[in-house]
């Protein structure tokens, strides 16, 4: 039961992002031969499946008005834990996967609990989580751990062939399941709507009798789970664990969420928007590869420019909505301003 597509301020940012993606893909198709191939489009998902998973978790965090800086390190820790359990301890893969996912849940729970119970800013607590998880990687090993486990090898090389010979990887299937789940939860469950309410006005959410504390903790648990899952998917991609994996990837996740139309101030955004954000991000990379002469770091410049542009656009939306809503300064930002 999808809502009617109408041009209102709620889904406009998502449509803008979709439009941008179509435009960029169109420009690529005209400029470079071979760009407009089904496989090239599907590669966007294959190459960015882990980012897609991180993005879904991050979308919930940001909609609630929070931030999670730990996801990149958590992903790295997840790659280290899986590779070490598989290669050094020789655990069964069917045991490794739940253990790794649980580790992500546990770290997320810890951060969410501290943020909620001690009323500390998510920025600082997840920054601490960033260092903690990164440090734990080096506790496991300083070196790269290659993965030779058969199950992992199969997962890495398996192809899900679609009509017309194009294919996707199992990672993409996992990522799409997470996306679907994220869309369902955000739109059709009490938990999902409470996330939006908290992002809109936490004080009001409490006064309306919503389970704010529980929901806020669960948001970080979910993000932790997504990071761990993204780590496993990442090892399907690289077949190794390395402590430096996913450096700065939390920033990529935040950037794709913002490009996807989610407001950093919370309350507004969508999982679908984040999917388009990741696709825009992926397309920029592919465009630069096809262009051939530009250094891959130009991706960063393009992303930086886009984030800047989208934030500016959101501000314009906000101010157009009129001054009436702005009269009430939420307590948090009032405190920050003084």
């Amino acid at each position: 039961m999808k809502p009617k597509i109408s041009l209102n301020s709620r889904n406009l940012p998502t449509l803008v992002t979709l439009g941008l993606f179509v435009l960029m893909f169109g420009v690529g198709s005209i400029s470079f031969s071979g760009f407009l191939a089904p496989q090239n489009f599907l590669n966007l998902f294959i190459d960015n499946s882990y980012l897609l998973i991180l993005g879904v978790g991050m979308t919930f965090v940001i909609i609630s008005g929070g931030i999670d800086l730990s996801v990149g390190s958590m992903l790295a820790f997840s790659t280290m834990l899986s590779s070490s359990l598989l290669e050094k301890s020789h655990w069964n893969p069917m045991l490794v996967i739940p253990v790794v996912l649980l580790s992500g849940v546990a770290l997320g729970l810890l951060m969410g609990y501290i943020i909620q119970i001690f009323e500390l800013p998510p920025f600082i607590i997840t920054l601490a989580g960033l260092y903690l998880a990164r440090g734990l990687c080096y506790v496991i090993s300083i070196d790269t751990i290659g993965i030779t486990n058969q199950f992992w090898q199969d997962a890495a090389h398996a192809q899900v062939v679609l009509i017309g010979g194009a294919f996707i990887s199992p990672s993409v299937v996992i990522a799409l399941v997470v996306v679907m789940a994220g869309m369902f939860v955000s739109r059709s469950t009490k938990f999902g709507r409470t996330v939006y309410a908290i992002g809109g006005n936490e004080q009001s959410a409490i006064l309306m009798g919503l389970p704010v504390a529980r929901t806020k903790i669960l948001i970080y648990v979910f993000s932790g789970f997504c990071s761990a899952l993204a780590g496993i998917v990442f090892t399907f991609y690289t077949l190794s664990g390395y402590a430096l994996n996913g450096a700065n990837m939390e920033m990529d996740a935040i950037a794709t969420v913002v490009i996807g139309g989610t407001l950093l101030t919370g309350g507004v955004g969508s999982v679908l928007g984040t999917v388009f954000g990741v696709m825009v991000y992926g397309t920029i990379q592919v465009l630069i590869v096809f262009q051939g002469t530009l250094n891959s770091w130009w991706t960063r410049i393009a992303i930086g420019f886009l984030v800047f542009l989208f934030c500016l656009m959101q501000r314009l939306f906000e101010s157009r909505k009129g001054a009436r809503g702005r009269k009430r300064v939420p307590p948090a930002s009032a405190a920050a301003a003084s």
């Binding site: 939006y196 809109g200 006005n201 309306m208 809503g325």
Partner: peptide, 14 residues
Amino acid sequence: NLCLNLSVAENIFI
């Protein structure tokens, strides 16, 4: 004490 970012219906029923 409502959430301005949610729909009218949601504010009544959330």
